[in-house]
Amino acid sequence: MKAKDLRSLAVEDLQMKDNEMREDLFKLRFKHGIRRLENPAKLSQLKKDIARVRTVIAEKKQNQSA
């Protein structure tokens, strides 16, 4: 997911997306503990996407307060 695409979303949408991604990450970690994943690189990609979403949320909140 590109940061450019994320910047066009509202803060509420970004927070919902963050919650969904964190839930997906939890499920993937759980599956990874039980058995091998088909694509273990998905874990690191999901972590990076979560970081992007959280960065954009922080930027938007900072711009609103300024």
Score class of each variant (00 low, 15 high):
Met1Ile: 12
Met1Ala: 14
Lys2Met: 07
Lys2Gly: 11
Asp5Gln: 02
Asp5Tyr: 00
Asp5Met: 01
Leu6Pro: 06
Leu6Phe: 09
Leu6Ser: 06
Arg7Leu: 08
Arg7His: 04
Arg7Met: 08
Arg7Glu: 12
Ser8Met: 04
Ser8Ala: 09
Ala10Val: 06
Ala10Arg: 10
Val11Asn: 02
Glu12Ala: 10
Glu12Asp: 09
Asp13Thr: 10
Asp13Pro: 04
Gln15Ala: 11
Gln15Ser: 12
Lys17His: 11
Lys17Arg: 14
Asn19Leu: 12
Asn19Cys: 10
Glu20Asp: 13
Glu20Ile: 14
Glu20Gly: 04
Met21Ser: 12
Met21Arg: 09
Met21Lys: 14
Met21Tyr: 12
Met21Ala: 14
Asp24His: 15
Asp24Cys: 13
Asp24Ile: 09
Leu25Phe: 12
Leu25Met: 12
Arg29Leu: 11
Arg29Lys: 11
Phe30Asp: 15
Phe30Ile: 13
Phe30Ser: 15
His32Trp: 09
His32Ala: 15
His32Met: 07
Gly33Glu: 05
Gly33Leu: 06
Ile34Pro: 00
Arg36Glu: 07
Leu37Thr: 01
Glu38Asn: 11
Asn39Asp: 14
Pro40Phe: 03
Pro40Cys: 04
Lys42Glu: 08
Lys42Ser: 04
Leu43Glu: 00
Ser44His: 09
Ser44Tyr: 08
Ser44Arg: 10
Gln45Arg: 08
Leu46Pro: 06
Lys47Gly: 07
Lys48Pro: 03
Asp49Glu: 05
Ile50Glu: 02
Arg52His: 11
Val53Cys: 05
Val53Gln: 02
Arg54Met: 09
Arg54His: 06
Val56Asn: 00
Ile57Asn: 01
Glu59Phe: 00
Glu59Ala: 04
Glu59Gln: 10
Glu59Arg: 05
Lys60Met: 02
Lys60Thr: 00
Lys60Leu: 01
Lys60Ser: 00
Lys61Glu: 15
Lys61Thr: 11
Lys61Ser: 10
Lys61Leu: 15
Gln64Thr: 01
Gln64Trp: 01
Gln64Cys: 00
Gln64Ser: 07
Ser65Asp: 08
